[in-house]
Amino acid sequence: MYQGSNLLDPAERSARGEALHHEVTGLKPAKAVTPYDQSWRDFIFAEVWSREGLDRRARYLVAIAGAALSSGEDGHLYGYVHGALKSKILSVVEMREAALHLSVYGGWSRGGHVDAAITKAVKALKLVDEPCAPIRGEPWDQRARGDFGGNEFMKVMTFAGGGGETPYLEAIRNFVFGEMWNRRALDERSRRWLTLVGVCESCAETPIKSHIYAAMASGNCKPAEMQEFVLAYGIHAGWPKASVIQGAVFAMTRNFEMGLGWNG
């Protein structure tokens, strides 16, 4: 049952939707004159964003990733970024880190849209764009970086892997886990939500199931939160894609609660 299902009066629901739209984005919503506009106000903001199953920080991250990877209109992405920064729920440094992380799981082209939205919001809000830590500031031994990446993979995914000698598999071990996942500008739980949207958008069964399982097995995300994630994800991905993810969440929750691995 929707937590906002007690909003039986249409005027009350619309008022809540307008208020939440303004609260979430930090921008005054335009007048809703079409059914599409009204659905944003009356369903997405009034009913989904008012739910308590996910904290506001998690919802921002899922929404930012979803808006960026769905190739929707830029205004949706900008609204989420602007609201997250204005509310100080996410800092500029954390947002810059989120753009990097999403580039790995959604492609650098889409990550660039997030980075551009951050730059625009920083300017509009007159914030200081603090310098970010370099990807790596010191020399390293390539083998040592690979070993470190393998250990980080085990920590993040909760099972061994990250090996292989192809350029792609080396990049997973050396860059994705050897460098990006262990950067401290963004916490691991936040990285989970960005990753989940990215792998769900991939429509690739193994990444979807393994990352959903790892999100719970690592302790970063609770099973109930994963159910709420499906609804939040569906806003930008659409209900057909979300139905696939719902099935994966059911299956991986069962495996997790029975003490099985992601592949049973």
Score class of each variant (00 low, 15 high):
residue 91 S to E: 03
residue 164 G to W: 06
residue 237 A to V: 08
residue 10 P to K: 01
residue 81 V to H: 03
residue 44 I to Q: 02
residue 14 S to Y: 07
residue 212 I to A: 09
residue 160 A to W: 13
residue 255 N to F: 09
residue 165 E to G: 14
residue 19 A to W: 01
residue 227 Q to F: 12
residue 60 Y to N: 11
residue 201 E to L: 09
residue 141 D to R: 13
residue 240 P to M: 15
residue 77 L to P: 08
residue 135 I to R: 12
residue 86 K to M: 10
residue 32 A to N: 02
residue 76 H to T: 14
residue 85 L to C: 12
residue 146 G to L: 02
residue 121 A to M: 02
residue 5 S to A: 14
residue 63 A to Y: 02
residue 95 M to I: 13
residue 234 G to Y: 07
residue 125 L to D: 05
residue 216 M to P: 04
residue 23 E to M: 02
residue 12 E to W: 15
residue 88 K to F: 02
residue 124 A to M: 05
residue 64 I to T: 01
residue 137 G to H: 15
residue 128 V to I: 15
residue 88 K to T: 12
residue 59 R to F: 00
residue 108 W to S: 15
residue 34 T to I: 11
residue 144 A to H: 11
residue 119 T to A: 15
residue 234 G to I: 01
residue 24 V to W: 02
residue 84 A to L: 11
residue 154 M to E: 06
residue 174 N to P: 07
residue 56 R to W: 08
residue 129 D to R: 07
residue 39 S to Y: 07
residue 157 M to Q: 08
residue 10 P to C: 15
residue 111 G to H: 04
residue 83 G to L: 06
residue 242 A to L: 05
residue 200 C to W: 04
residue 22 H to Y: 12
residue 64 I to P: 01
residue 186 L to H: 00
residue 197 V to N: 10
residue 171 A to R: 06
residue 106 G to Q: 06
residue 27 L to D: 10
residue 253 T to G: 10
residue 10 P to T: 09
residue 202 S to I: 00
residue 210 S to T: 05
residue 124 A to E: 12
residue 118 I to P: 00
residue 187 D to P: 04
residue 125 L to G: 04
residue 66 G to H: 03
residue 165 E to I: 11
residue 113 H to Y: 12
residue 65 A to V: 00
residue 116 A to G: 08
residue 191 R to L: 13
residue 35 P to N: 15
residue 138 E to M: 09
residue 74 D to Q: 13
residue 43 F to P: 05
residue 146 G to I: 03
residue 144 A to F: 10
residue 14 S to I: 06
residue 15 A to K: 11
residue 38 Q to C: 06
residue 96 R to N: 11
residue 86 K to P: 07
residue 236 H to M: 09
residue 157 M to E: 07
residue 41 R to K: 08
residue 21 H to R: 03
residue 65 A to K: 02
residue 80 Y to N: 07
residue 2 Y to V: 08
residue 215 A to V: 02
residue 208 I to T: 04
residue 21 H to M: 03
residue 141 D to F: 12
residue 167 P to G: 15
residue 105 Y to I: 08
residue 147 D to Q: 14
residue 129 D to A: 11
residue 96 R to V: 06
residue 115 D to R: 15
residue 121 A to Q: 03
residue 208 I to L: 05
residue 176 V to K: 05
residue 144 A to M: 14
residue 94 E to W: 01
residue 91 S to P: 01
residue 8 L to H: 12
residue 229 F to V: 09
residue 246 Q to G: 14
residue 43 F to M: 14
residue 263 N to Y: 11
residue 167 P to E: 10
residue 124 A to N: 11
residue 70 S to T: 07
residue 61 L to N: 04
residue 49 W to L: 04
residue 211 H to W: 11
residue 253 T to P: 01
